[in-house]
Design a protein around this nucleic acid. Structure first.
Lengths: 191, 191
DNA sequence: TTCCGCATGTAACCAGTTACATGATTAC
DNA sequence: GTAATCATGTAACTGGTTACATGCGGAA
Protein backbone atom coordinates (compact mmCIF):
# COMPACT_ATOMS: atom_id res chain seq x y z
CA UNK A 1 0.00 0.00 0.00
CA UNK A 2 2.40 2.62 -1.17
CA UNK A 3 0.30 4.85 -3.40
CA UNK A 4 -0.72 6.93 -0.40
CA UNK A 5 2.89 7.38 0.50
CA UNK A 6 4.05 8.07 -3.03
CA UNK A 7 1.43 10.82 -3.07
CA UNK A 8 2.67 12.13 0.26
CA UNK A 9 6.20 12.34 -1.13
CA UNK A 10 5.02 14.06 -4.28
CA UNK A 11 2.81 16.45 -2.36
CA UNK A 12 5.62 17.26 0.06
CA UNK A 13 7.68 18.40 -2.87
CA UNK A 14 4.86 20.60 -4.07
CA UNK A 15 1.19 21.08 -3.17
CA UNK A 16 -0.94 20.20 -6.17
CA UNK A 17 -4.25 19.07 -7.58
CA UNK A 18 -5.18 15.49 -8.34
CA UNK A 19 -4.91 16.17 -12.02
CA UNK A 20 -1.47 17.60 -11.56
CA UNK A 21 -0.35 14.65 -9.47
CA UNK A 22 -1.55 12.28 -12.17
CA UNK A 23 0.57 14.05 -14.74
CA UNK A 24 3.61 14.11 -12.48
CA UNK A 25 3.20 10.41 -11.81
CA UNK A 26 3.56 9.86 -15.52
CA UNK A 27 7.06 11.27 -15.26
CA UNK A 28 9.48 11.20 -12.34
CA UNK A 29 7.72 9.15 -9.66
CA UNK A 30 5.84 7.10 -12.23
CA UNK A 31 9.18 5.63 -13.10
CA UNK A 32 8.65 3.33 -10.15
CA UNK A 33 5.05 3.89 -9.22
CA UNK A 34 2.28 4.61 -11.67
CA UNK A 35 -1.37 5.41 -11.10
CA UNK A 36 -4.37 6.49 -13.12
CA UNK A 37 -6.10 9.74 -12.29
CA UNK A 38 -9.21 7.92 -11.08
CA UNK A 39 -7.26 6.09 -8.47
CA UNK A 40 -5.42 9.18 -7.40
CA UNK A 41 -8.73 11.00 -6.86
CA UNK A 42 -10.08 8.14 -4.82
CA UNK A 43 -6.99 7.83 -2.67
CA UNK A 44 -6.79 11.60 -2.18
CA UNK A 45 -10.36 11.56 -0.87
CA UNK A 46 -9.47 8.85 1.61
CA UNK A 47 -6.31 10.63 2.66
CA UNK A 48 -8.29 13.76 3.30
CA UNK A 49 -10.79 11.97 5.47
CA UNK A 50 -7.86 10.44 7.34
CA UNK A 51 -6.44 13.91 7.89
CA UNK A 52 -3.19 13.31 6.04
CA UNK A 53 -3.86 16.10 3.58
CA UNK A 54 -6.04 19.20 3.44
CA UNK A 55 -7.65 20.82 0.43
CA UNK A 56 -8.44 24.29 -0.66
CA UNK A 57 -10.39 24.99 -3.77
CA UNK A 58 -8.80 27.44 -6.16
CA UNK A 59 -11.05 29.22 -8.63
CA UNK A 60 -9.51 29.83 -12.03
CA UNK A 61 -10.43 31.96 -14.97
CA UNK A 62 -11.46 30.17 -18.11
CA UNK A 63 -10.82 26.75 -16.69
CA UNK A 64 -12.44 24.56 -14.06
CA UNK A 65 -11.79 25.09 -10.37
CA UNK A 66 -9.12 22.94 -8.89
CA UNK A 67 -8.62 21.38 -5.51
CA UNK A 68 -5.11 21.92 -4.32
CA UNK A 69 -3.95 19.39 -1.74
CA UNK A 70 -1.21 19.88 0.80
CA UNK A 71 0.24 17.60 3.45
CA UNK A 72 -0.86 18.15 7.05
CA UNK A 73 1.35 17.53 10.04
CA UNK A 74 -0.44 14.20 10.54
CA UNK A 75 0.49 13.38 6.96
CA UNK A 76 4.09 14.32 7.60
CA UNK A 77 4.36 12.04 10.58
CA UNK A 78 2.67 9.21 8.73
CA UNK A 79 5.20 9.60 5.94
CA UNK A 80 8.09 9.59 8.39
CA UNK A 81 6.69 6.49 10.10
CA UNK A 82 6.25 4.69 6.79
CA UNK A 83 9.80 5.49 5.74
CA UNK A 84 11.11 3.71 8.80
CA UNK A 85 8.71 0.75 8.51
CA UNK A 86 10.15 -2.26 6.67
CA UNK A 87 8.50 -3.08 3.36
CA UNK A 88 8.30 -6.19 1.23
CA UNK A 89 11.18 -7.06 -1.04
CA UNK A 90 9.53 -6.65 -4.39
CA UNK A 91 9.66 -9.21 -7.14
CA UNK A 92 9.79 -8.28 -10.79
CA UNK A 93 6.71 -9.13 -12.80
CA UNK A 94 7.18 -9.53 -16.50
CA UNK A 95 4.65 -10.86 -18.93
CA UNK A 96 7.29 -10.78 -21.62
CA UNK A 97 9.53 -13.09 -19.62
CA UNK A 98 6.68 -15.58 -19.46
CA UNK A 99 6.35 -15.35 -23.23
CA UNK A 100 10.06 -15.89 -23.75
CA UNK A 101 9.92 -18.91 -21.54
CA UNK A 102 6.95 -20.27 -23.45
CA UNK A 103 8.26 -19.39 -26.91
CA UNK A 104 8.48 -23.05 -27.82
CA UNK A 105 4.71 -23.51 -27.57
CA UNK A 106 3.93 -21.10 -30.37
CA UNK A 107 5.53 -19.02 -33.07
CA UNK A 108 9.00 -18.21 -31.77
CA UNK A 109 9.41 -15.56 -34.47
CA UNK A 110 6.32 -13.74 -33.21
CA UNK A 111 7.76 -13.76 -29.70
CA UNK A 112 11.00 -12.36 -31.08
CA UNK A 113 9.01 -9.56 -32.72
CA UNK A 114 7.44 -8.82 -29.36
CA UNK A 115 10.85 -8.71 -27.73
CA UNK A 116 12.01 -6.29 -30.41
CA UNK A 117 9.04 -4.04 -29.71
CA UNK A 118 9.68 -4.01 -25.96
CA UNK A 119 13.36 -3.43 -26.56
CA UNK A 120 12.53 -0.33 -28.58
CA UNK A 121 10.20 0.98 -25.86
CA UNK A 122 12.81 0.52 -23.14
CA UNK A 123 15.54 2.04 -25.28
CA UNK A 124 13.34 5.07 -25.69
CA UNK A 125 12.72 5.34 -21.98
CA UNK A 126 16.41 5.03 -21.36
CA UNK A 127 17.04 7.95 -23.71
CA UNK A 128 14.46 10.05 -21.91
CA UNK A 129 16.05 9.31 -18.55
CA UNK A 130 19.53 10.05 -19.82
CA UNK A 131 18.44 13.33 -21.34
CA UNK A 132 16.72 14.14 -18.07
CA UNK A 133 19.84 13.43 -16.09
CA UNK A 134 22.05 15.54 -18.30
CA UNK A 135 19.70 18.46 -18.29
CA UNK A 136 18.59 18.41 -14.65
CA UNK A 137 21.49 16.92 -12.77
CA UNK A 138 24.69 18.35 -14.13
CA UNK A 139 27.50 17.83 -11.64
CA UNK A 140 25.82 15.18 -9.48
CA UNK A 141 28.65 15.09 -6.95
CA UNK A 142 27.44 18.37 -5.54
CA UNK A 143 23.92 17.11 -4.88
CA UNK A 144 22.50 17.04 -1.37
CA UNK A 145 19.14 16.18 0.19
CA UNK A 146 16.01 16.02 -1.94
CA UNK A 147 17.85 16.57 -5.20
CA UNK A 148 20.36 13.86 -4.39
CA UNK A 149 17.55 11.42 -3.62
CA UNK A 150 15.78 12.23 -6.86
CA UNK A 151 18.97 11.66 -8.77
CA UNK A 152 19.58 8.31 -7.06
CA UNK A 153 16.18 7.07 -8.14
CA UNK A 154 16.78 8.29 -11.67
CA UNK A 155 20.07 6.39 -11.64
CA UNK A 156 18.15 3.26 -10.70
CA UNK A 157 15.77 3.76 -13.58
CA UNK A 158 18.65 4.22 -15.96
CA UNK A 159 20.43 1.11 -14.72
CA UNK A 160 17.30 -1.01 -14.99
CA UNK A 161 16.36 0.16 -18.46
CA UNK A 162 19.88 -0.44 -19.64
CA UNK A 163 19.85 -3.94 -18.22
CA UNK A 164 16.56 -4.72 -19.93
CA UNK A 165 17.75 -3.46 -23.30
CA UNK A 166 20.90 -5.56 -23.02
CA UNK A 167 18.94 -8.59 -21.94
CA UNK A 168 16.52 -8.27 -24.84
CA UNK A 169 19.46 -8.04 -27.20
CA UNK A 170 20.81 -11.30 -25.84
CA UNK A 171 17.39 -12.90 -26.16
CA UNK A 172 17.06 -11.74 -29.75
CA UNK A 173 20.49 -13.02 -30.63
CA UNK A 174 19.59 -16.42 -29.24
CA UNK A 175 16.02 -16.52 -30.52
CA UNK A 176 16.45 -15.09 -33.99
CA UNK A 177 20.05 -15.46 -35.05
CA UNK A 178 20.86 -12.83 -37.68
CA UNK A 179 20.74 -14.17 -41.23
CA UNK A 180 23.00 -13.24 -44.07
CA UNK A 181 20.07 -12.61 -46.38
CA UNK A 182 17.09 -11.37 -44.44
CA UNK A 183 13.78 -12.69 -45.82
CA UNK A 184 12.01 -10.19 -48.04
CA UNK A 185 8.53 -10.04 -49.41
CA UNK A 186 9.11 -10.05 -53.14
CA UNK A 187 6.50 -9.00 -55.74
CA UNK A 188 5.94 -12.68 -56.39
CA UNK A 189 4.34 -13.09 -52.97
CA UNK A 190 1.22 -11.25 -53.99
CA UNK A 191 -0.81 -12.41 -56.94
CA UNK B 1 -4.03 -11.13 -17.45
CA UNK B 2 -1.07 -13.41 -17.71
CA UNK B 3 -1.52 -15.82 -14.82
CA UNK B 4 -3.64 -18.09 -17.01
CA UNK B 5 -0.91 -18.13 -19.60
CA UNK B 6 1.89 -18.59 -17.13
CA UNK B 7 -0.02 -21.62 -15.88
CA UNK B 8 -0.45 -22.88 -19.44
CA UNK B 9 3.30 -22.65 -19.97
CA UNK B 10 4.04 -24.39 -16.70
CA UNK B 11 1.45 -27.08 -17.37
CA UNK B 12 2.76 -27.63 -20.89
CA UNK B 13 6.14 -28.44 -19.40
CA UNK B 14 4.54 -30.91 -17.04
CA UNK B 15 0.98 -31.84 -16.03
CA UNK B 16 0.53 -31.13 -12.34
CA UNK B 17 -1.75 -30.33 -9.42
CA UNK B 18 -2.57 -26.85 -8.19
CA UNK B 19 -0.43 -27.43 -5.15
CA UNK B 20 2.47 -28.46 -7.30
CA UNK B 21 2.06 -25.44 -9.56
CA UNK B 22 2.10 -23.16 -6.55
CA UNK B 23 5.39 -24.63 -5.44
CA UNK B 24 6.92 -24.38 -8.89
CA UNK B 25 5.80 -20.78 -9.15
CA UNK B 26 7.90 -20.09 -6.09
CA UNK B 27 10.93 -21.11 -8.10
CA UNK B 28 11.57 -20.80 -11.82
CA UNK B 29 8.50 -19.08 -13.23
CA UNK B 30 7.91 -17.19 -10.02
CA UNK B 31 11.07 -15.32 -10.84
CA UNK B 32 8.90 -13.18 -13.05
CA UNK B 33 5.37 -14.19 -12.13
CA UNK B 34 4.30 -15.16 -8.65
CA UNK B 35 0.97 -16.37 -7.35
CA UNK B 36 -0.50 -17.71 -4.14
CA UNK B 37 -2.06 -21.17 -4.09
CA UNK B 38 -5.53 -19.74 -3.55
CA UNK B 39 -5.35 -17.76 -6.72
CA UNK B 40 -3.95 -20.66 -8.67
CA UNK B 41 -6.86 -22.86 -7.56
CA UNK B 42 -9.35 -20.23 -8.57
CA UNK B 43 -7.80 -19.63 -11.97
CA UNK B 44 -7.45 -23.36 -12.62
CA UNK B 45 -11.18 -23.77 -12.00
CA UNK B 46 -11.95 -21.04 -14.49
CA UNK B 47 -9.55 -22.47 -17.03
CA UNK B 48 -11.21 -25.83 -16.72
CA UNK B 49 -14.66 -24.39 -17.31
CA UNK B 50 -13.22 -22.58 -20.33
CA UNK B 51 -11.89 -25.87 -21.63
CA UNK B 52 -8.24 -24.87 -21.60
CA UNK B 53 -7.27 -27.66 -19.21
CA UNK B 54 -8.72 -30.97 -18.13
CA UNK B 55 -8.44 -32.69 -14.76
CA UNK B 56 -8.19 -36.18 -13.54
CA UNK B 57 -8.24 -37.01 -9.89
CA UNK B 58 -5.43 -39.20 -8.69
CA UNK B 59 -5.95 -41.17 -5.49
CA UNK B 60 -2.89 -41.51 -3.31
CA UNK B 61 -1.97 -43.63 -0.35
CA UNK B 62 -1.50 -41.87 2.94
CA UNK B 63 -2.07 -38.46 1.49
CA UNK B 64 -5.00 -36.53 0.07
CA UNK B 65 -6.19 -37.10 -3.48
CA UNK B 66 -4.85 -34.71 -6.00
CA UNK B 67 -6.28 -33.19 -9.14
CA UNK B 68 -3.79 -33.36 -11.94
CA UNK B 69 -4.35 -30.78 -14.66
CA UNK B 70 -3.20 -31.02 -18.24
CA UNK B 71 -3.51 -28.67 -21.19
CA UNK B 72 -6.17 -29.45 -23.79
CA UNK B 73 -5.81 -28.65 -27.46
CA UNK B 74 -7.99 -25.57 -26.91
CA UNK B 75 -5.50 -24.54 -24.22
CA UNK B 76 -2.62 -25.10 -26.58
CA UNK B 77 -4.11 -22.88 -29.25
CA UNK B 78 -4.96 -20.22 -26.70
CA UNK B 79 -1.36 -20.25 -25.53
CA UNK B 80 -0.09 -19.96 -29.10
CA UNK B 81 -2.49 -17.09 -29.79
CA UNK B 82 -1.42 -15.27 -26.64
CA UNK B 83 2.25 -15.64 -27.51
CA UNK B 84 1.65 -13.80 -30.76
CA UNK B 85 -0.61 -11.13 -29.23
CA UNK B 86 1.21 -7.93 -28.25
CA UNK B 87 1.33 -7.22 -24.52
CA UNK B 88 1.87 -4.09 -22.47
CA UNK B 89 5.38 -2.84 -21.90
CA UNK B 90 5.66 -3.35 -18.18
CA UNK B 91 6.85 -0.70 -15.79
CA UNK B 92 8.89 -1.51 -12.72
CA UNK B 93 7.12 -0.94 -9.45
CA UNK B 94 9.31 -0.38 -6.44
CA UNK B 95 8.18 0.74 -3.04
CA UNK B 96 11.80 1.04 -2.01
CA UNK B 97 12.48 3.53 -4.79
CA UNK B 98 9.66 5.68 -3.44
CA UNK B 99 11.28 5.53 -0.02
CA UNK B 100 14.66 6.50 -1.38
CA UNK B 101 13.09 9.42 -3.16
CA UNK B 102 11.33 10.49 0.02
CA UNK B 103 14.27 9.87 2.36
CA UNK B 104 14.49 13.58 3.14
CA UNK B 105 11.07 13.59 4.80
CA UNK B 106 12.06 11.20 7.55
CA UNK B 107 15.00 9.39 9.05
CA UNK B 108 17.44 8.91 6.16
CA UNK B 109 19.43 6.44 8.24
CA UNK B 110 16.35 4.24 8.62
CA UNK B 111 15.85 4.30 4.86
CA UNK B 112 19.49 3.33 4.43
CA UNK B 113 18.91 0.39 6.74
CA UNK B 114 15.97 -0.65 4.57
CA UNK B 115 18.11 -0.43 1.47
CA UNK B 116 20.71 -2.63 3.16
CA UNK B 117 18.05 -5.20 3.96
CA UNK B 118 16.77 -5.28 0.40
CA UNK B 119 20.28 -5.42 -0.94
CA UNK B 120 20.93 -8.53 1.12
CA UNK B 121 17.74 -10.17 -0.13
CA UNK B 122 18.58 -9.51 -3.75
CA UNK B 123 22.16 -10.64 -3.31
CA UNK B 124 20.82 -13.89 -1.93
CA UNK B 125 18.47 -14.35 -4.87
CA UNK B 126 21.32 -13.64 -7.21
CA UNK B 127 23.34 -16.40 -5.57
CA UNK B 128 20.46 -18.82 -5.92
CA UNK B 129 20.08 -18.01 -9.60
CA UNK B 130 23.79 -18.31 -10.25
CA UNK B 131 23.98 -21.66 -8.49
CA UNK B 132 20.97 -22.75 -10.51
CA UNK B 133 22.60 -21.75 -13.74
CA UNK B 134 25.83 -23.53 -12.97
CA UNK B 135 24.14 -26.71 -11.93
CA UNK B 136 21.38 -26.88 -14.53
CA UNK B 137 22.79 -25.12 -17.56
CA UNK B 138 26.38 -26.13 -18.00
CA UNK B 139 27.49 -25.40 -21.56
CA UNK B 140 24.68 -23.02 -22.52
CA UNK B 141 25.86 -22.69 -26.12
CA UNK B 142 24.46 -26.11 -26.84
CA UNK B 143 20.98 -25.28 -25.61
CA UNK B 144 18.00 -25.48 -27.96
CA UNK B 145 14.25 -25.04 -27.64
CA UNK B 146 12.59 -25.17 -24.21
CA UNK B 147 15.86 -25.41 -22.32
CA UNK B 148 17.30 -22.46 -24.19
CA UNK B 149 14.23 -20.37 -23.39
CA UNK B 150 14.40 -21.29 -19.73
CA UNK B 151 18.02 -20.31 -19.62
CA UNK B 152 17.33 -16.97 -21.32
CA UNK B 153 14.79 -16.09 -18.66
CA UNK B 154 17.18 -17.13 -15.93
CA UNK B 155 19.81 -14.86 -17.51
CA UNK B 156 17.33 -12.01 -17.29
CA UNK B 157 16.76 -12.69 -13.62
CA UNK B 158 20.48 -12.75 -13.00
CA UNK B 159 21.03 -9.50 -14.87
CA UNK B 160 18.23 -7.74 -13.02
CA UNK B 161 19.29 -8.91 -9.56
CA UNK B 162 22.83 -7.87 -10.25
CA UNK B 163 21.71 -4.44 -11.37
CA UNK B 164 19.62 -3.99 -8.25
CA UNK B 165 22.47 -5.00 -5.94
CA UNK B 166 24.81 -2.56 -7.67
CA UNK B 167 22.25 0.20 -7.56
CA UNK B 168 21.62 -0.30 -3.86
CA UNK B 169 25.35 -0.14 -3.27
CA UNK B 170 25.46 3.21 -5.02
CA UNK B 171 22.49 4.42 -3.00
CA UNK B 172 24.13 3.34 0.25
CA UNK B 173 27.39 5.04 -0.65
CA UNK B 174 25.52 8.27 -1.30
CA UNK B 175 23.08 8.00 1.58
CA UNK B 176 25.30 6.75 4.36
CA UNK B 177 28.91 7.55 3.55
CA UNK B 178 31.15 5.11 5.45
CA UNK B 179 32.56 6.55 8.65
CA UNK B 180 35.98 6.00 10.04
CA UNK B 181 34.64 5.20 13.48
CA UNK B 182 31.27 3.53 13.22
CA UNK B 183 28.91 4.44 16.08
CA UNK B 184 28.85 1.83 18.80
CA UNK B 185 26.51 1.19 21.67
CA UNK B 186 28.81 1.41 24.64
CA UNK B 187 27.94 0.11 28.14
CA UNK B 188 27.29 3.68 29.16
CA UNK B 189 24.18 3.75 26.98
CA UNK B 190 22.25 1.60 29.37
CA UNK B 191 21.86 2.56 32.98
C1' DT C 1 -16.13 21.46 -36.22
C1' DT C 2 -13.31 18.64 -34.30
C1' DC C 3 -9.90 17.58 -31.27
C1' DC C 4 -6.77 18.47 -27.28
C1' DG C 5 -5.82 20.15 -22.51
C1' DC C 6 -7.66 21.26 -18.03
C1' DA C 7 -10.24 19.34 -14.13
C1' DT C 8 -13.13 16.20 -11.46
C1' DG C 9 -15.72 12.52 -10.74
C1' DT C 10 -19.10 7.68 -10.59
C1' DA C 11 -19.72 2.72 -11.34
C1' DA C 12 -18.55 -1.73 -12.53
C1' DC C 13 -15.25 -4.84 -12.77
C1' DC C 14 -10.95 -7.74 -12.35
C1' DA C 15 -6.75 -9.37 -10.08
C1' DG C 16 -4.52 -10.43 -6.10
C1' DT C 17 -3.95 -10.89 -0.89
C1' DT C 18 -5.13 -12.40 3.82
C1' DA C 19 -7.36 -15.07 6.99
C1' DC C 20 -9.41 -19.21 8.04
C1' DA C 21 -10.68 -24.27 7.68
C1' DT C 22 -9.93 -29.28 7.10
C1' DG C 23 -7.46 -33.58 7.70
C1' DA C 24 -4.03 -37.17 7.12
C1' DT C 25 1.11 -38.49 7.51
C1' DT C 26 5.77 -38.04 8.78
C1' DA C 27 9.70 -36.28 11.33
C1' DC C 28 11.73 -34.30 15.63
C1' DG D 1 2.97 -33.48 21.58
C1' DT D 2 4.21 -30.30 18.12
C1' DA D 3 5.45 -28.84 13.80
C1' DA D 4 5.96 -29.47 8.85
C1' DT D 5 4.43 -31.30 4.33
C1' DC D 6 0.76 -32.64 1.26
C1' DA D 7 -3.63 -31.07 -0.71
C1' DT D 8 -7.77 -28.38 -1.46
C1' DG D 9 -10.76 -25.03 -0.69
C1' DT D 10 -14.27 -20.64 1.06
C1' DA D 11 -14.94 -15.73 2.20
C1' DA D 12 -13.86 -11.15 2.77
C1' DC D 13 -11.22 -7.59 1.40
C1' DT D 14 -7.94 -4.27 -1.02
C1' DG D 15 -5.80 -2.31 -4.90
C1' DG D 16 -6.03 -1.17 -9.51
C1' DT D 17 -8.18 -0.79 -14.28
C1' DT D 18 -11.73 0.42 -17.74
C1' DA D 19 -15.54 2.71 -19.29
C1' DC D 20 -18.30 6.55 -19.08
C1' DA D 21 -19.79 11.43 -17.97
C1' DT D 22 -19.40 16.53 -17.75
C1' DG D 23 -18.04 21.07 -19.39
C1' DC D 24 -15.15 25.06 -20.77
C1' DG D 25 -11.42 27.22 -23.77
C1' DG D 26 -8.18 27.36 -27.37
C1' DA D 27 -5.86 25.61 -31.42
C1' DA D 28 -5.93 23.31 -36.10
Amino acid sequence: MALEHAILVSLSERASSGYDLARRFDRSIGQFWSATHQQIYRVLARMESDGWVRVHVVAQEGRPDKKVYEVTSAGRSELAAWLARPSEVDIARSELAVKIRGAGYGDAAAVAAEVRRHRAAHAERLDVYLANEEHEFADPRRLRGRRLHQWLVLRGGIALERTLVDWYDDVLAALAPPRRTPPRRTPKDRP
